[in-house]
Write a protein that binds this DNA or RNA. Structure first.
Lengths: 198, 198
DNA sequence: AAATTGGGCGTACATTTGTAAGCTGAAAGT
DNA sequence: ACTTTCAGCTTACAAATGTACGCCCAATTT
């Protein structure tokens, strides 16, 4: 095995260890370098061969999380071909995502309002991608102004994100309720955005 | 000075010290018992005379924060007498609140998706009060079903909260933009909720 | 073949943390 | 006047943390 390969491998081990330890009761901030190193199976000081500090690791995690989100979006758009309702398909796809990758979602959710400005803007950037693509879709669909579309898209993303946060801790049954509620909220927004007098 | 008075006084000192230390770069979770005690001007172990642990203090802070929120709501309703637009008055009042008590707002914002289930549900409860009162208002105003009103109210509160989070770090100018955007979003919701076919 | 590089390790240290144990002195109760 | 109560203090300790320093040895380069 080549040296670069091995290095990449332990780098992944660190990243995976970090994701692994994130949970409902464990935020990234409460993660210690030593804990991550332990989980990754390396000595604490070896951590520095890959990241300058925990912040650098954290930003990497946020980037990866954002990447996964964008993949999710593509997936949702593919589903649209076979399904008429944009809104319900999107919300349901999102719910599947947060269940499958709850740790990733929790990271983004928390660091969005976390203590590190770098983290906050990193998450904001990822969400912005999300909004921009949705706005683009809305503008084409509804033939409204780009600004109007963006404002609507942002509201939609906020609502869906929040619904995801609630759904994380909920039972299957409650999560279904939340999904329906969110769909209704998005439809309110969609209907209202068509109104001339705002 | 009576003994009970003195005890209450240091209790307040602890609470105030905790609020004082919350900031953009310091969450409650990253607050240590010793730090708070130092700021409050007492010995670390004296902390235990007032709270069993940091969690108990944190829940107290959340309660106080919720109380302040409800006071804010009353204030907004009083302003309504002299002003026609419910939505813009409410959003503007909210923005004033988060600027004046940014530490309090940050606490609620973060612990809403924090690592402690007790904190999360405490914050959720406070926000629920907010929603319930708003829903009541909407129901009377729009003569819609209680359920519909609640769904709309929740969406509104989520959007306003999120706008507040963005506004915290923003300049006066940007904050104004955010305020206008949020008002527009709420109007979309209000207009859309009147649509029969959802 | 020899020299260099670099990932991983063990040791070590200064800090910070939560909290246990026990003392003190003034307020409150008798 | 006495005893009791109790908020606050000092001291003490074990645990955990970030990270500096230097060694090792296999992959790479020369």
């Amino acid at each position: 095995m080549t040296r670069a390969e091995q290095k990449e491998r332990t780098r992944r081990a660190i990243i995976n260890a970090a994701f692994e330890q994130l949970s409902a009761d464990k935020s990234f901030a409460s993660l210690s370098l030593r804990e991550v190193a332990r989980e990754a199976g390396i000595a604490p000081t070896s951590f520095y061969r890959h990241f300058a500090d925990m912040d650098e690791l954290g930003l990497t995690l946020v980037d990866e999380g954002g990447l996964m989100l964008r993949q999710l979006m593509r997936q949702a758009r593919q589903r649209l071909i076979n399904n008429t309702s944009v809104i319900s398909t999107s919300v349901e796809t999102f719910m599947e995502f947060i269940m499958r990758h709850s740790n990733v979602f929790r990271l983004l959710l928390r660091e969005r309002s976390g203590t590190s400005a770098a983290f906050r803007s990193a998450v904001a950037r990822e969400i912005q991608h999300f909004c921009a693509e949705l706005a683009d879709y809305l503008r084409k669909e509804n033939q409204c102004s780009a600004e109007q579309a963006m404002i609507q898209a942002e509201a939609m993303v906020i609502l869906v994100f929040h619904a995801g946060a609630d759904a994380l801790d909920a039972s299957d049954e409650v999560r279904q309720k939340i999904t329906e509620k969110t769909i209704l909220q998005l439809r309110m927004l969609a209907a209202g955005s068509q109104h001339a007098s705002l």
